[in-house]
Design a protein around this nucleic acid. Structure first.
Lengths: 236, 236
DNA sequence: TGCTATCTAGACCAGATGGTCTATAAATAA
DNA sequence: TTATTTATAGACCATCTGGTCTAGATAGCA
């Protein structure tokens, strides 16, 4: 009874694991070691989702590695339901990609089955109180992955290689409009220049970016940071 | 002397903080409470960078809030140098946006000035040994921010609103090629169909996506998750 | 069985796009 | 001053793109 006397309602929990033995093990653990209320258990993701709709628990402990519908997809679905249910991913693997994807889709915690039972209870406690919980080791792994994918995306081309840097001011303005799907005629009107001038600029842009048409130019611009002062992509 | 007797080389540290009192305070703390070697200190980011080039320390403790060049920019520059220096951001603010940006550009840790000195030493220890360290509270804040920005991007449009979901299999294939900058002729060749058929598909795509030309179609596709099974954008 | 959706493809045409060449004015750098 | 860069714009032409209409083949559904 870690939390002892208190006024807050006991958090209700649903457990999901395709392994029945493991399921009852965790159930027992939680009931003995904490004052959380295990309102239901499920051995498949689809059953779990209907139980969640029925019981509206605060917390769902979801095994990631399950046949049929996997846990990650299930978590995504639960998040989409937007019932305020907070999901903790539970798995045997500390694969950073798994961790990243789980956190991405909205898991509020991620713990390993090999971790001590106290850590599991602590995690539920933290998540139930509105926090997001990742053990330090997993957090570290997550960030390595996070930074790595970021680096690959952003440092893929240096300033000298980024052909966008060779565009003139006016060419940038034209390209900016092209990336918004504006036609030549539209560009001409917006910039108060003739359509032929637009074409001249566009041809220069093509040459500088080494592309053959507007679509490729737009794609080049989007992929090479033309708007990336505001938005950044992360490889998944 | 937390680490006591050991064979590993003492990690060398450079401290950066525009406040000189604070700087010497931390220096003293590190020298008394740990066996790290403070090889240099700096009160500005630009001085820090030259010191880093000179001393090649393992660790840099960088204050984020400084006049002139701010700490985040400095960290980004240090990362770009690619000297294997591991930087820890040190600041008074637990603003999730700051944390996110720091981790994004490659900071290996982020700690608050208000945190206990033991935590600072622990953070250096962890980072020096190759890990990434974020205290649980900051990590939690980071993830909230991370998930929020993610949700905004991906759930901006529901499935029913996402016109991409109304495309047929074949139309998706065509659009996929268009988003790679392929011409109609190219699409025809790749899909082994006539150019007229491509045009028919493209026209249907335009109608379904309610756009007027290929560029707009490509933009719609990119902005509405056409590739988001692989790549995901995060608002910064 | 008939209805519907999907994929295929042709015809015809207007207009948009892209390629190339030339040329002028203004600003800037050598 | 001269050369270069940038922004402007016209001419000419081939090709690509997009709009509309028709239509056959196939598959699935009611």
């Amino acid at each position: 009874m870690r939390r002892g006397l208190e006024f807050k309602k006991k958090a209700r929990v649903i457990l999901v694991d395709d392994n029945y033995e493991h399921l009852s093990g965790i159930k027992e653990l939680i009931e003995i070691e904490s004052d959380f209320d295990v309102v239901a258990t499920a051995t498949s993701a689809s059953v779990a989702i209907s139980l969640i709709k029925k019981y509206r628990p605060e917390i769902v402990l979801m095994d990631i590695n399950m046949p049929e519908k996997d846990g990650l997809t299930a978590i995504a679905e639960i998040e989409k339901l937007d019932l305020g249910v907070r999901t903790i991913a539970l798995t045997g693997y500390d694969d950073p990609d798994l961790i990243f994807r789980a956190m991405k889709i909205g898991a509020k915690g991620y713990i390993l089955k090999t971790m001590a039972s106290a850590q599991l209870i602590y995690a539920i406690d933290e998540v139930a109180s509105g926090k997001i919980y990742l053990p330090a080791t997993l957090s570290s792994r997550f960030f390595e992955y996070f930074q790595k994918s970021f680096k690959e995306e952003t440092q893929a081309v240096s300033d000298e290689e980024n052909l966008l840097n060779y565009l003139t001011q006016r060419e940038e303005e034209v390209l900016d409009l092209l990336t918004q799907g504006v036609t030549y005629k539209g560009v001409a009107q917006k910039l108060f220049i003739s359509e032929t001038t637009v074409k001249t600029h566009v041809n220069n842009i093509f040459q500088k970016l080494q592309v053959n048409d507007r679509t490729q130019a737009v794609l080049y611009a989007l992929n090479n940071g033309f708007l990336n002062r505001r938005k950044v992509k992360i490889a998944i």
